[in-house]
Design a protein around this nucleic acid. Structure first.
Length: 475
RNA sequence: GCGCCCUUCGUCUAGCGGUCCAGGACGUCGCCCUUUCACGGCGAAAACACGGGUUCGAGUCCCGUAGGGCGCGCCA
């Protein structure tokens, strides 16, 4: 009875997969999964000038990183041009479309005039009913749709509701260019029809297109798929998303140290909700997703909330997974921090051992790796201003006094060093912080770090004593 | 200019005529925990754009106004 659900994600390969595209893909994917259907991937590369191979690769990589999979082979729209042409010719033969010989200049004048007279800027249909014999010699015509001039065109949108256009406000769009190539408007309709797409889920910047595409469906005598136009994502300032804010490629979010699972959770809640639920596992998203939960107003991109989610997912990730996540972005984030591009077995082991304390304190992988500085730093350490202040303020003297106690330790463990430090503090009438903070500074170069005794444990006896001696010597 | 869409705390949102002196989350601010920073816990400030209707009753329905967005190509 009802056909199996088929959705599609149809990006044009003129740039990376940006955050809005990622969410559109996610929604299509979730809807298909929710209904046991398929999500197809179609690359809309009919603009030969602007489409690039690297952009296609970036989109594929981005989807893969986000964990969004598609069914079947990737469809390349340009490869289907002959089929698009065939449909246009067929419409022409049926009298539902016509040749238009208007020149670029004429069209420009038309727009100018309309603007001057305060009328909508539309093609005036001057070739609509002219006899082909009037065609000017040597001019290659375009094929335009003979769109209905009276009545209305209705889109029953699953998100926007019933949206109505007066046909007099819609003009005869071009189906086939004079060079014989299809326009986007035609190609989309033909492809969605041929691919048996049942649900078109896309940004609401396409809402007006939906009306014009509906006219094409009707001219072809084809069933119009369900439509769902989702509101766009805006930048933090409410304006259209630009490169300055969130319109980064999804690969940029990877480099920034975000986890795909966190980005997915953030994205799914942008414009969609399910009661008060904030956290969704992939399965929960699939089970709960539906058009009912999609709002109609645009949402602003908020890094702070993304970071919060990312922190949440980092804390609940396994230590091993986080280490390997860091390793994948290490070539990018390592060198700027004086760290290698790959982990040595020893460093990997230390990073893994320190991970419980590290992941608790970071919002991104980059931040996490940054706070792991003490693991990959080599003597002599460089000190942040606050760390230097802790050492200068009597800190070095305390380290010098404590040093013999630590050197004499028979066993080097978190418990053993903690006992020694506490005993030392008590014996000298010092608060633990007065001893611990200078130690932290000397060992990590920072005023903040994971638990001090865990740091000492992971770092090991020799490295710790070495770093402490460096400071004791300056006391 | 024309068409279409949108408008609840700073942000994401719940709310589908009475249960709302509007709930959750992020952020912000306080307190607690604490060797630091986080995490966690507790608490606070913070919104129905405005004006008319409809109704016994409106954040919820209708109409205006204002503000914002998208579209108006032989781009996609």
């Amino acid at each position: 009875m009802s056909r199996p659900v088929v959705t599609r994600f149809a990006p044009s390969p003129t740039g990376f997969l940006h955050i809005g595209g990622g969410r559109t893909a996610l929604f299509n994917w979730l809807y298909a999964r929710r209904h046991g259907g398929k999500m197809l991937l179609r690359i809309e590369d009919t603009d030969r000038e602007r489409s690039t191979e690297s952009a296609i690769q970036a989109i594929l990589d981005g989807l893969q990183w986000l964990g969004i999979t598609w069914d079947g082979d990737v469809v390349y729209q340009f490869a289907r041009a002959a089929r698009h042409r065939e449909v246009a010719e067929s419409l022409l033969a049926q009298g539902r479309a016509y040749h238009c010989y208007a020149s670029q200049q004429e069209l420009e004048e038309m727009r100018e005039k309309a603007r001057a007279e305060g009328r909508p800027m539309r093609y005036d249909g001057r070739w609509r009913d002219r006899d082909p014999s009037e065609a000017p010699p040597g001019v290659k015509p375009v094929i335009r749709l003979k769109a209905p001039q009276d009545g209305e065109t209705v889109v029953e949108d699953k998100v926007q509701g019933r949206v109505v256009w007066q046909n007099k406000d819609l003009d005869d769009l071009v189906l086939l260019r004079s060079d014989g190539n299809p326009t986007y408007m035609l190609a989309v309709v033909v492809d969605d029809h041929d691919m048996d797409v049942t649900h078109v889920i896309r940004g609401d910047d396409h809402l007006t297109n939906a009306a014009r595409q509906t006219q094409i469906y009707q001219a072809c005598g084809w069933e119009v798929p369900e439509m769902a136009h989702i509101p766009l994502i805006h930048g933090p300032d409410g304006a259209k998303l630009s490169k300055r804010h969130g319109a980064l490629g999804v690969d940029a979010y990877r480099s920034l140290g975000y986890l795909p699972i966190a980005l997915r959770n953030y994205l799914v809640r942008l414009g969609w909700s399910h009661g008060d639920q904030e956290f969704f596992s992939t399965q929960e998203m699939i089970d709960a997703f539906g058009f009912e939960g999609i709002g109609r107003s645009p949402a602003r991109f908020d890094f702070a909330k993304l970071e919060h989610l990312n922190g949440h997912y980092m804390r609940s990730s396994s230590d091993a997974d986080l280490v390997s996540a860091i390793e994948t972005i290490l070539p990018e984030i390592g060198p700027p921090r004086g760290a290698p591009t790959a982990l040595t077995p020893r460093l990997r082991a230390q990073l893994t051992a320190a991970m419980p304390g590290l992941k608790e304190r970071a919002k991104t992988l980059v931040e996490l790796f940054d706070s792991a500085y003490y693991l990959y730093a080599s003597r002599p350490l460089t000190f942040e201003a606050k760390a230097e202040a802790l050492l200068a303020d009597g800190g070095r003297a305390r380290i010098a006094a404590l040093l013999p106690e630590l050197e004499a330790l028979a066993e080097w463990s978190a418990a053993a060093t903690e006992a020694a430090v506490r005993t030392f503090a008590d014996a000298n009438g010092l608060k633990l912080g007065q001893v611990a903070q200078p130690l932290r500074a000397a060992l990590t170069g920072r005023s903040t770090s994971p638990g001090l005794f865990d740091v000492m444990d992971v770092l090991g006896r020799e490295e710790c004593l070495g770093r402490l001696r460096d400071q004791a010597a300056k006391a």
